[in-house]
Simulated scan of single mutants.
Amino acid sequence: MTEPSLDVVAIGNAIVDVIARADDELLAMHSLVKGSMQLVDTATAELLYDNMGPGLEMSGGSAANTLAGMAALGRSCAFIGQVRDDVLGKAFSHDIRALGIRFDTPARTEEPPTARCLIMVTPDAQRTMNTYLGASQHLPPAAIDADLIRSARILYLEGYLWDPEEPRSAMRGAMATAREAGREVAFTLSDAFVIERYRDDFRALIEDGLIDILFANEVEIMSLAQINDFEEAVALFAPKVSTLVVTRSEKGAIAIKNGERFECGAAPVREVVDTTGAGDLFAAGFLSGHVTGKGPVDCLAMGAIAAAEVISHYGARPETDLKALMGGFLHA
C-alpha cells in the first residue's frame, strides 16, 4: 500500500456564511426553530437576508471548517466541493487556498449561484442556520479525483451534503475508492434534520461497515437510533464502527474505540459567543490527534480545546493560534 501524502481529504458543501445577531422575535416572525438548520430556496434566502441585521461574511461549510482547523494545526488537507464562478465562489476559493488547503474542483459557469448559509445568533449563543445550497448541490461524480482520495489517510464526509442526489452519488464513489485503497472513512451526521431525511441511508452505511469513524452530537445519535436514551443510543452504534465520537456540549464528549470507552470534559471558555462550528472544530482537533497517532483521550482533549476556541467568538473558523492552545498535545 502506498504511503499517504495527505492527512485528510474532505467532501462537503462549499458555502459562504453570513452571520448576524438576532433576537427571538425575528426567529418567531419567520417560524424558525432555534438551534436548527433548514434548507431554503432562493426566495426565502433573499427574504431572510433582507431581514437580518449587519453581519459578517466568511467562507464556511462544515467539512471545510474542519479542514481549516486541521490546517491550523499543521495537517495536510484537500477539499472537494462545488462553487460557481461568481463573487462568492471566488471568495470561497481564495479563502480555503489561503489556508494551505488544496482545492482543485472546477467552478461551475451556470446557475445556481454559490451556496450561502444565513446564520442568526441569538443572545443565548444558539445559532439558527438557513442554508441555500446553490451550486454546492451540483457536485458531480466526475469531480471526484480518485488519486486524490487514495492519497489521504482519511476521507471525511459531511452529512449535510448527502441531501442532493448528485453529490450523494459522488460521495458513494469516493467511499468505494477509499475502501479499495485501504483508507479510513470518517462521517459526520451533521444535523438531526438531515438524519430525519436519510436515517435509513446512514444506518445502512454503518451496518455495511463503510464508516470507520462516526461523529455525532447527543441529539444526533439519539435521532439516528430513534431512542430517547443517550446511553442506549450509544450502545446501539458503538459496536458497528471502529470509533464512535459523540459530543455533549458542556458535558464534554465521549469516544468508544474498539469497544473501549473514553471521556473528556468540555474545555473552559470565558464566554460562549457563538456555537457555530463547534462540532466542526471538535472533529478538527480529534482527527488531528488521530492522524498523528494520539490515543482517544488526547484526541478528545484536542477536540474540546478547538471547539472551545471557536465558540468564544463569531464565526466557524479559528481566530487564535490553535497550535499554541494545544501546547504539549502536539509534541508529546
Rank of each mutant, 00 (worst) to 15 (best):
E3I: 07
S5N: 06
V8S: 02
I19V: 14
A28Y: 13
M29D: 15
L32G: 05
Q38F: 09
V40M: 05
T44N: 07
L47C: 12
L47V: 13
L48S: 10
M52C: 11
M58H: 03
T66I: 00
L67F: 02
A68I: 02
G74W: 08
R75S: 08
R75T: 00
C77Y: 00
F79A: 01
F79L: 07
D85V: 02
S93G: 13
H94C: 09
I96N: 01
R97T: 07
I101N: 01
R102G: 13
T109A: 13
P113Y: 00
A115W: 01
M120P: 08
P123Q: 05
Q126F: 07
T131I: 01
L133Y: 01
L133V: 02
A135M: 08
P140G: 10
P140F: 03
P141S: 08
A143E: 07
A146I: 09
A152H: 08
L157P: 04
E158A: 10
G159R: 03
G159W: 08
D163Q: 09
T177R: 02
R179H: 15
A181C: 10
A181G: 08
R183K: 07
E184D: 12
F187Q: 00
L189R: 02
D191I: 06
D191E: 08
V194M: 12
R197N: 05
D201V: 13
D212V: 05
I213F: 11
V219L: 13
I221Q: 03
I227S: 06
E232L: 15
E232W: 03
V234A: 12
K240I: 00
S242V: 05
T247R: 03
R248F: 13
E260V: 14
R261L: 14
R261N: 05
R261W: 07
P268N: 01
V269F: 12
R270D: 15
E271T: 11
V273Q: 06
T276Q: 09
G279W: 04
G285L: 08
K294R: 15
L300C: 08
L300S: 10
M302D: 05
G303V: 00
A304G: 14
A304F: 10
A306Q: 02
Y314P: 05
R317L: 11
E319D: 04
E319M: 14
E319H: 13
L322N: 01
G327P: 07
G328D: 12
